[in-house]
Amino acid sequence: MLNIFKKEINHFFSSLIGYIAVGVFLLATGLFLWAFPDTGILEYGYASLESYFYMAPYIFMFLIPAITMRSFSEEYNAGTIEILSTKPITDNQIIGGKFLAALFLVFFALLPTLLYFYSVYQLGAPVGNIDTGATWGSYIGLLFLGGAFVAIGVFSSAITNNQIVAFLLAIFLCFFIYTGFDYISRLNVFYARLDAFVEQLGIDAHYQSIGRGVVDTRDILYFISLILVFLFFTKVVLEKRRW
C-alpha cells in the first residue's frame, strides 16, 4: 500500500495537475475571503473563519474530482491496471493507497490556509480573540468532508475509463450527497415524518455539526461509514473485471 501511496504522491507533485488543483483552491479561497467584499472576512468584522468553512466544500466539490478523476481511469486507459493486478498486492491495498494519496493532497491544500487562522488571530481585538477550539473543530470537519469527497471521486474514477466522465460524475455525486438530501428532505412526502432522517443522510448536516466546534461521535461515524461504503463500492467495481 505504501508503494502505491508513494507512487501516487510522486505523480501528483511531478505533474501539473496536482499543483493546479491546489493552486486554484488557494487562489479561490484567498480571493473570496480576502479580496471580495461580499464574502470577505475583513468586511464581516467578526474574528472567525466561518465564511471559509462555509465556502470550502463548494470549492472541494470541483477540485477533489479533478484530483481523483485519473486515479483508475488512467490506469484503465494505459492498461497499467493489468500490470498492477499481476503484482502481489490486493485490491484493498490499491484502493487504500490511492485514497490516502488523494486525501494527503487535500491535507496539503489545507495546510497553507492555516495562515488565515494566523491572520484572524493577529487581527482580533484583542489579539487571539478567535475561538481556537471551534476552528480546530471546523478543520476536522473539513478534513472528513474532503475524505468523503475523495472516496466518491475514487469510486467515480473506477467505473469509467474516461477521465471527463469520472470528473463530472464525481462532481454530481459530491454535490448530491452534500446538499441533495437536504433538498429532498424538504419534499412534501417526507414532511414531518422522515425529513430529519433524510437530512441526516447528507453530508451537510454532519459537516455543519462538526463545523460549529462540536466533535460528535455520530458525525465521525457517519463520515467514516460514507468513506468506507464508497471504497467498498470501488472494490466491487474492480472485482467486476474478473467476473
Binding site: Y19, A35, L42, Y46, Y116, V120, Q122, G124, D131
Partner: peptide, 30 residues
C-alpha cells in the same frame, strides 16, 4: 457568548498587507 471582533483599526492600517499576505503567500509557498 464572548464577542469576537476584528480590530478595525488594524484592518484600516494594514488592509492591503493582510490581503496580500493571505492571497499571495500561500501561492508563492506552493
Amino acid at each position: 457568548v464572548k464577542l469576537r471582533l476584528l480590530d478595525q483599526g488594524k484592518i484600516k492600517d494594514g488592509k492591503t498587507f493582510w490581503q496580500m499576505l493571505n492571497l499571495v503567500l500561500p501561492l508563492i509557498g506552493l
